[in-house]
């Protein structure tokens, strides 16, 4: 009998990838009054889960999850418009959760919702930590395949994953339950069509709080001392031709 896939896809609301973030005056963070969207790597996760269903894998359901401010539900609606069946939001407007906190929260969701496959993005493009999936795998003591560029799930629940590593790719094999994090080359996420966006509005979206998971304070470990602008680079002007380029590079000691 084929193993049923009960998939969890955590998604994060982040500043849109095309927006250049600006550090705020108080040097406590970046200006957040800008366009936000789903973390690009999380779009790949949703897409992969939906493709599993389309490839006639025994997908029981796809649960999209987010933790963060109320507006994160927009991201969950997007995930549902792409094909997730339902959404779960842990609403938290004040505390910014760290990867360890999110991993602990996800562990509880995995257990509550009896998940056997979690597909996460390899990193969020705001914090750039690249930790949550690995931490979750550690907490659950499940196998992990990070930076996946290809995923194959067999009838018997064995999973073969090709992952991007320094210098090339490697292929791993493990059995469900497991954790996968997605890399850019995994797939090409679809655009949600208008009818699907409308349908997504009717899909169930459950709201909870950190308190429901016994994590009121969020378990923050790191204290932000400051956030600063990176040192500005001075564009050094242009040269007329190739000879000018070589001369300038020699002058700068680069050749």
């Amino acid at each position: 009998m084929a193993t049923k896939l009960r998939i969890l896809v955590p998604v994060k609301r982040v500043i849109d990838y095309a927006v250049k973030p600006r550090v705020n005056k108080a040097q406590t963070g970046v200006e957040t009054n800008v366009k936000h969207s789903m973390n690009p790597f999380d779009e790949l996760s949703i897409e992969e889960a939906v493709r599993m269903r389309e490839a006639k894998k025994p997908v029981e359901d796809i649960l999209a999850f987010s933790a963060g401010p109320a507006k994160s539900q927009d991201i969950l609606r997007t995930a549902m418009a792409m094909g997730a069946d339902r959404g779960l939001l842990v609403q938290e407007d004040k505390i910014e959760l760290e990867p360890l906190g999110v991993a602990k929260l996800l562990k509880k969701v995995v257990e509550d919702e009896k998940r056997n496959l979690v597909i996460l993005g390899k990193q969020s493009i705001d914090d750039d930590a690249n930790q949550t999936g690995q931490m979750l795998a550690g907490l659950l003591n499940w196998p992990q395949a990070t930076q996946a560029s290809k995923v194959d799930i067999a009838e018997d629940g064995s999973v073969q994953v090709t992952r991007e590593v320094d210098g090339g790719v490697e292929t791993l094999k493990a059995k469900l339950p497991m954790i996968i994090t997605t890399d850019l080359r995994l797939n090409e996420p679809r655009y949600a069509s208008l009818p699907n966006i409308m349908k997504a509005k009717k899909k169930p979206l459950e709201k909870k709080t950190l308190k429901d998971y016994g994590m009121e304070d969020g378990g923050k470990r790191l204290k932000t001392i400051k956030v600063a602008e990176p040192p500005a680079r001075q564009g050094g002007g242009k040269v007329e031709d190739v000879d000018g380029m070589i001369a300038k590079l020699k002058e700068l000691g680069a050749l």
Binding site: D128, A129, Q134, A137, G138, L139, T146, Q147, D166
Partner: peptide, 23 residues
């Protein structure tokens, strides 16, 4: 913060209940 370190260290951090600092 190589492919090896990225893959491994957060798992170590979680097992030790530590919030890793990356990169």
């Amino acid at each position: 913060h190589s492919a090896f370190g990225k893959n491994l260290m957060p798992r170590v951090a979680a097992l030790l209940d530590v919030q890793q600092i990356s990169d």
